[in-house]
Amino acid sequence: MYNFQTRVMEDSDGYNSKSQKRYGKTSLLKRIPLHKLMDLKVDYAFKQFFGNEKNKDITVVFLNAILQRNDRNRIRDISFSNTEAGGEYVGDKQSRLDLLVITDSGERINVEIQFTNKYSMIKRSIYYWSGIYRNPLRKSMSYKELSPVISINMMNFNLFNQTELFHTSYHLYEDEEKFKLTDVMEFHFIEMPKLIKAWKVEKLNPWNDILARWLLMLGMVDHRNDEVYEDIYEELEEIAMKDETLRNAFRNWEELSMTHEEFLAYESRLKHIMDEESAQREAELRLKEETEKAIKRGLEQGLEQGLEKGLEKGLEQGLEQGLEQGLEQGKREGKKIGEENAKEAIARKLLDKGMTIESVAELTNVSESRIIEIQNDIEK
C-alpha cells in the first residue's frame, strides 16, 4: 500500500545534512530538494506542467523532440484543445485525454501518459486516435479536410518484448514495398523503464540527443519506488546551463511542485493510482489462488470422465492403451473446466463489487459477452 506523506512546504529554507547530502540544493532548484518535485509521469502532474499555457514554449520543444522534427517541418506554435472524448454509442463513458494540442499546421497531437499497465494500450490508443480524427468532420465537409492525428503514448512500464528501443513509431505501410499509405495516422510509444535501463548502461547521451534529455527529466523522479536519480539530475543541470528551455522547465517544475493546492491534488491522484494498482494486484493473486483450486477440482472431475471414456476405448484398443488415453484426455478437460469455472467465479465477485464489465473482462481474460451474461444473471 502506498503511503505518501511528504509536504512541499516543509523545510523550504533548509533540511538536515543527510537530505542535503542525498538530494542537495543546486543552482537549478532554489527552494526545494529533488525528492519534493512532482513525478511528471503521474498524469495530473504531466498535464498541469505540459498543458499549461505558461509552459507552451516548453511543450513545443518537447513535442518536436519526440517527433524528431527538423527546422523545415518543426512545430512552431500550438493551441490547447478540449480534452473530453465522448463515447461512440449512447451510454459510453466520457474519456478524458491527458493532453490534446493543435499545431500551427493543423495537426492534432494527443499525448497520453500511463503510470500503470491496466489498459490494452495499443487498442486504447487506436480508439482515441479514431475519435480525434473523425470529431472535426461536420455536414458538408469533405474527407480531404480531415487533418492528420498523431498519438503519443508515454508509459511507466514496458509494452513491447520485441525490442529494447524505448521510443518506437508506427505508420501505415504497404506490406511488400513498404511505401506509406497515408500521413494522417502516426503512433509513438515511449517506454520509460527501457529509457532508464539505457541510461544505466551508458547508451544515452543527452548532450547530443534532445529527446533523451527531455525524457530523462521525466524519469528523474520516481515516486512509486521512492527514488531520485541524482546522476541524471547532475547531467541535466550541466546541460541546462546552455539550454535555456530546459532551465526554464526546471524552474517551472519547481514552482508547480511548491504550489500547495497543486501538490495536494497531485498527492491525492498519486495515492489513488497506487491504491488501484494495489487492488489490481490483490485481485490477480486471488484469481490465481481460485484458479489453482478450481483446476484441482476440475482435474479430479475430468480424470473420472476420462477414465470412463478410456475404459470404453479400452474395449476396442486394449485396456492399457485406453486407460492411458483416458487419463490424458481427463487431465486436459479437467484443466480447461477448472480454469473457466475459476475465472467466471472471480468475474462474478468483481462485478458484485461494482467493477466495470470492461475491467473485469481484461482482468479475468473472459470475453465481454460472457461477462455481460454473468452480469445479467446477477441482476435477475
Results as ranks from 00 to 15, higher is better:
T6L: 14
T6K: 11
R7D: 03
V8D: 00
D11Y: 13
D13N: 15
D13F: 15
D13A: 14
Y15D: 08
K18H: 05
K21D: 02
K21V: 12
Y23F: 15
T26E: 06
L28W: 09
V42I: 13
D43T: 09
F50E: 00
G51S: 10
N52R: 08
E53Y: 07
K56W: 06
I58V: 11
I58C: 10
L63I: 14
N64H: 11
A65R: 13
R72W: 14
R74T: 09
R76F: 04
I78A: 08
N82P: 05
T83G: 01
E84T: 03
E88C: 11
Y89D: 12
D92R: 14
Q94C: 08
R96A: 05
R96K: 15
L97N: 02
D98P: 03
G106T: 11
G106P: 05
N110A: 09
E112G: 03
F115V: 01
Y128G: 01
S130K: 04
R138D: 01
K139C: 00
M141N: 09
E145V: 01
L146C: 01
I150C: 04
I152L: 09
M155C: 12
F157L: 09
L159K: 05
T163V: 15
T163K: 15
E164L: 08
L165T: 09
T168R: 13
Y173I: 14
Y173E: 13
F179W: 12
V184W: 05
V184G: 03
M192D: 02
P193K: 11
I196K: 07
A198T: 07
W199I: 02
V201S: 10
E202T: 11
N205K: 15
P206N: 10
W207D: 08
A212R: 10
L216D: 04
L216Q: 06
L216C: 11
M217F: 15
R224G: 00
D226W: 14
M241S: 09
K242W: 06
D243E: 11
E244T: 10
R247F: 12
N248G: 08
A249T: 13
A249P: 03
R251V: 05
N252T: 00
W253Q: 00
E255M: 12
E255V: 08
S257V: 03
M258K: 04
E261Q: 03
L264R: 05
L264D: 01
H272E: 07
E277N: 12
Q280W: 11
L285D: 02
E290T: 11
E290W: 01
A294D: 04
I295Q: 05
L299H: 06
E300Q: 14
L303P: 08
E304K: 10
E304H: 06
L307C: 01
K309N: 02
G310F: 04
L311C: 11
K313H: 10
G314A: 04
L315C: 09
Q317A: 08
Q325N: 07
G326N: 05
R332M: 13
E333S: 11
G338K: 04
G338V: 05
E339K: 15
I346A: 01
A347Q: 02
K349V: 03
S359Q: 09
A361G: 10
L363M: 10
T364D: 12
V366M: 06
I371L: 07
Q375C: 06
I378L: 14
I378H: 01
